[in-house]
């Protein structure tokens, strides 16, 4: 039984993450806070493209 703990752990975490991700995608963004972000540049690398090349100004 103990051998399976890591697999169960990772699998459950992955499921939790995917659920959270999908739920977040389904939750609508409140109307007044829609921010126009350039999707194309932002999906490539969250950390960088949005700030340097997309320029959040």
């Amino acid at each position: 039984m103990k051998d399976f703990v890591p697999y169960i752990m990772i699998a459950s975490l992955v499921v939790v993450y995917m659920l959270a991700y999908l739920l977040n995608k389904k939750t609508p963004i409140p109307e007044e806070c829609k921010i126009e972000l350039d999707e194309e540049t932002c999906t490539a690398c969250h950390n960088f493209s949005c700030t340097h090349h997309g320029d959040v100004e």
Partner: peptide
């Protein structure tokens, strides 16, 4: 894991 380069290459 969170190195921009790796995730960036994967996506792009």
């Amino acid at each position: 894991v969170v190195n921009c380069l790796i995730l960036g290459r994967a996506e792009a």
